[in-house]
Write a protein that binds this DNA or RNA. Sequence first.
DNA 1: TCGGCTCTCACCTTTGAAGCGT
DNA 2: AACGCTTCAAAGGTGAGAGCCG
Length: 537
Amino acid sequence: MLQEKASAVTDDAMTRVQPGGEAELVPDPSRLGLSTTSGVPSGNEPDQVHFALFSQNIENIKVVLHERELWKKFHEAGTEMIITKAGRRMFPSYKVKVTGMNPKTKYILLTDIVPADDHRYKFCDNKWMVAGKAEPAMPGRLYVHPDSPATGAHWMRQLVSFQKLKLTNNHLDPFGHIILNSMHKYQPRLHIVKADENNAFGSKNTAYCTHVFHETAFISVTSYQNHKITQLKIENNPFAKGFRGSEEGDLRVSRLQGKEYPVISKNMVRQRLISSHGHLAGKLGAGVLAGHPQVLSSYQYEPGVPLSNSDPQDPLSNHFPQSRDPSLLYHCFKHRDNARHLELGCKRPYLETSPAVSEEHYFRSPPSYESPLLSHPYCTEAITSREACMYSSMETESGSGAGDAEDLNAPSLNCNMWATVQPYPRYSVQTVEGVPYQPFTAHFTNTATVTSVVPHPSSSMTSRPQAEIGVYSSSTVQRGSRDRSTHQPLYHRKPGSPLRPHRDLSAYPAQSAMSIRDPSYQYQMGLSSAGTHWTDS
DNA sequence: TCGGCTCTCACCTTTGAAGCGT
DNA sequence: AACGCTTCAAAGGTGAGAGCCG
């Protein structure tokens, strides 16, 4: 039942990816609760939600993944992302070009990373294989773009970059980084939430859309398993330039020779021999990474649901046992419920980090499955002197923490309830392509707060790489004339400075939003069974 | 006890932001 | 205000070794 509820609330429109990688909106009544058996919209059902949805103009928004080709390269090799205790950035970084927004409307852009499935993986014989059942999901956290909320004009002006986002395997991470399990597969998602003054977050009219770029899926690791990924990172990441040296020569040679796999350097050989000489053997052997039946089978999300868009020739399937449509998935829906969730109270917002108070304080909070955004809206005041700010709620098995079923007495469409993290397959929500899709839910409630939050344009909007996608800024950045208004050191945690994982948001007036300078805001949201937020009926 | 796998940490190089002087 | 230089934090992957588990 909960699943049905989830499906009803989440995906009411998806997009097919067009040649350019843009999303084409495809309203899907089936995801509006009008049908739960098929992802194919009938088009016959009266659907006021669609009407409302379109009135939001959300459907016009198109999102293009920046450096898509690079992502594809990684994806074809089986993208791996390092996760560390201190937090590691993603590379390639998640950057998008957004178009189709109303220039004057305010939007909030945020990302989250959800489990792609229920499996734990191991890298064996030069390919990823299912190694068992996934460990319990980490508390879900949201990364809100530091410029949020900002006008459509602002978002469309240049690339929107989430490069500051960090991944960690520290379950007690106080920094607001997104917590992942190693050797698990994840899928980043982008959410665009309409939040202008007349249609604020949490209001009845709030609409959002979710974009999923299939090629950004990755397996989290604590050290690279596939040397091809290592080489791609070294080749493409400026910070890894120092490792190019002779290795690069090897790569260059291999590329020139048109080999699918690079010549393996001494170091690589050594490394692989140490870790698993099977890898090397496989690589030097056939050089073809055949899909593993067992792995592939795990991606049959729904019996009877064809993976119509999966490309059997997609080399990715040789690495990532995933056959989803190699495209952007997208869904929009209109928020219908006025949340009373403010009453529910924010569980432990991560703010200033103080070792003394920190994790213990935070995690001792009563289990609750409410999305952090539910209990605490943007919490302007909360977002302060940290690299990342997030709100949290404790994960519960039953979802009872969300507790307050009464408060969740909302219609089937409820934008205030942003889904908790679940692997895709657990949801019966169907995309147009027949791919179950995980709803993203969270609570955005306080209009005033939202609008006063974080006004820091400029920050992580990347300017340099725009040419790559044909977007240019009227201004140029020159050495010595950098915009130092961004990432103000005032709020930059210096070494040795105390960490303050959280503080009571309620203690800070909205004016304190003035101090929000951090480039990122990461929110923690509850991870629950699908029904946690859908107990309303 | 042993071996394999996973994870952590110190290390080194590069990049870019910040600070300061001109 | 613009520019140039210096400093340093943070980014990257490497590699050794510790810890865990079967």
